[in-house]
């Protein structure tokens, strides 16, 4: 690890100000992505701004079907929330299969979204839930927020503060883990509202998470696994690596979608 200056802040405004003042500062949330990267000397921020003590970034509120989750809430806290489990079982499920217990108790919603790892779980969820990303500057629709691999719409001095969405009638998540990293080799989040069905896919797309629109249309007609029979994805648009070729991932998307549906 290179040397760095650590700052502890107690408000979002303070963090924003420091971001502007410092040379090459990085925000630190759960540290589950940033710290390993720094230890491997792949990141060398001049300053670390720890968001961990900002109360305003923490907590879950559920009002009827309206859900708002602070960016500093950990995966484990989301998973443990009875209200989330009641209104959005898919998100409850997802936060239970993300990483391992240590990661879930340290890593946060905001940190994960800001990182936009193409194999992270949340991107599938925010697309399917049609979520809104609240930042220190504005509100961003999920589809606009996720730009590409490890790329978001966030500006340099912008901090995610919360995520909100209307809980769907039914939701389900299924993930096929990369055997080594246990990140998503493919994760599919299915959400059904009164009029629409949305299917968010992570881990598989060549440009990061995406909505599988053909499946959404088919499921809007008939919300059952058989509606997916005959659908397929174009491998040329899929991610390929050591653990999963594009063809394999294209297959996994369909299989995981079927299984997410069975849980929804």
């Amino acid at each position: 690890m290179y040397s760095t200056t650590y700052h502890r802040v107690s408000s979002v405004d303070e963090a924003v100000k420091l971001l502007g003042d410092c040379d090459e500062a990085a925000l630190l949330s759960g540290g589950q992505t940033l710290l390993p990267t720094m230890k491997a000397r792949l990141a060398a921020p001049s300053d670390l701004i720890d968001l961990g003590r900002i109360d305003a970034l923490k907590g879950i509120s559920v009002d009827g079907r309206s859900v708002k989750i602070g960016a500093g809430t950990t995966h484990a806290e989301i998973h443990a929330s009875k209200e989330i489990a009641a209104v959005c079982p898919g998100l409850h499920e997802m936060t239970g299969v993300l990483g391992d217990p240590a990661v879930r108790h340290m890593g946060t919603l905001g940190g994960s979204l800001a990182n936009n790892d193409p194999a992270a779980d949340y991107p599938a969820a925010i697309l399917a839930l049609d979520a809104t990303i609240h930042t220190s500057k504005r509100e961003i629709e999920a589809g606009q927020f996720l730009v590409g691999l490890f790329e978001t719409a966030l500006e340099d001095d912008e901090i995610i503060t919360a995520v909100s969405f209307e809980a769907p009638e039914r939701s389900g998540y299924e993930k096929f883990r990369n055997p080594a990293s246990r990140y998503a080799m493919c994760g599919v989040f299915v959400a059904k509202s009164a009029e629409t069905v949305r299917v968010g896919v992570t881990g598989a797309g060549g440009d990061g998470a995406f909505r599988w629109e053909a499946a959404e249309e088919a499921l809007a007609q008939r919300f059952e696994a058989s509606a997916l029979e005959g659908l397929s994805l174009d491998p040329s648009e899929m991610l390929g690596d050591l653990h999963g070729s594009p063809e394999y991932r294209a297959n996994l998307v369909r299989v995981m979608a079927k299984r997410a549906l069975a849980k929804a």
């Binding site: 096929f176 070729s245 394999y248």
Partner: peptide, 18 residues
């Protein structure tokens, strides 16, 4: 015999990285 190579062996499709 990773999942992808087993799947490929069953379906006779993708090349196996390993």
């Amino acid at each position: 015999a990773t999942p992808q190579s087993v799947w490929a062996a069953i379906n006779g499709t993708t090349p196996d990285a390993f």
